[in-house]
Design a protein around this nucleic acid. Structure first.
Lengths: 165, 165
DNA sequence: GCTAACTCGGATATCTCGTATCCGAGAATA
DNA sequence: TATTCTCGGATACGAGATATCCGAGTTAGC
């Protein structure tokens, strides 16, 4: 029961992209967080495939959020990076062995699968209730209203003035 | 975000142990479900270490539930087999890179970690609300009141009359 | 009291999946 | 039109899960 490590990176990227006003290359995002550029690129590709971010190619290319931050639940980001398959997969072992449950009693899934599925649904519901906009607001509350715009400005420097660092 | 496959086996074993009236060897449990005896033994060891089942050695040994089924939440079984560590681990990447958040603003964990932690808590709460006894009752509702006792009798055959198969 | 057989428990190979990386395709700028 | 920068998929590497085996301990029977 472990979540892919790239999920954390993807979520942070989505939050900071909120403050950017121009396409941000994956390399720039990697530099901001001081993480592997190659690997973060992979996560951004996943977000792009899921339609959460729009990718622009070419010299001034990069990634832009394709929706309003308030319309992006955390669940979408997590599922884009980590996959949408549920944590628990029922192997139907009740149908095996000498005392296998007869097929006519297997119309509904077994109680174990139901309970695990309910827990999975609760987890997803919790993630679906929070959006990227909520996270951005929380960052303001924690680090002050100027923190996020400052990051956004730093990200924009890449395109505006390449002489920043 | 994938759960160890052994979790399913462990849960099924706990449910059927409800109906047994004598210690059941791991090999017998494996035969019931037609799964690898060696690997299931590993899961049972995890349950034993967690104190959910009591292990008896010797010729008439085996595993017995160490508590009333109503006192064993699914969460305990899942955590015993899969580990208790949370699915999301915050790497604190906000403290890295050129615009690292100053340490004095890191007294509380970042909004992302909080949101993921809340989802994890919801998942655990859902699992903690269901007990092995609830599952056993659901099995009765699905397959009839005689299904579970029949399995229990089959498990007991191992010790009572070894001439069963 | 002793032998023998059966049990659990931990230590040991194998393998899939996540981690990390690289190079080619495509587009906008100059 | 050529160049430079970007994304995108295909490619090695490593950790963790999967599956297994053998030794330690205990009980039953003789």
């Amino acid at each position: 029961m472990k979540l892919s490590g790239g999920v954390e990176w993807a979520l942070h990227c989505c939050v900071v992209l909120t403050a950017a006003s121009a396409p941000v290359p994956a390399a720039r995002l990697a530099a901001l967080h001081d993480v592997s550029p190659s690997y973060l690129a992979k996560q951004m590709q996943a977000l792009s495939r899921a339609g959460l971010v729009h990718s622009l190619q070419g010299k001034t290319g990069g990634y832009v959020l394709s929706k309003k931050p308030a319309d992006i639940p955390l669940l979408d980001v997590v599922q884009a990076v980590d996959g949408a398959s549920p944590a628990f997969v029922c192997t139907e072992i009740r149908r095996r062995g000498p005392l296998a449950t007869p097929p006519e009693q297997c119309v509904k899934q077994c109680p174990i699968a139901r309970a695990m599925g309910a827990a999975d649904a609760a987890w997803r519901a919790s993630l679906a209730a929070v959006t990227i906009a909520d996270l951005a607001a929380s960052v303001e509350g924690d680090s002050g209203p100027e923190a996020l715009p400052r990051v956004g400005a730093w990200l924009d420097e890449a395109t505006g003035a390449r002489r920043s660092d």
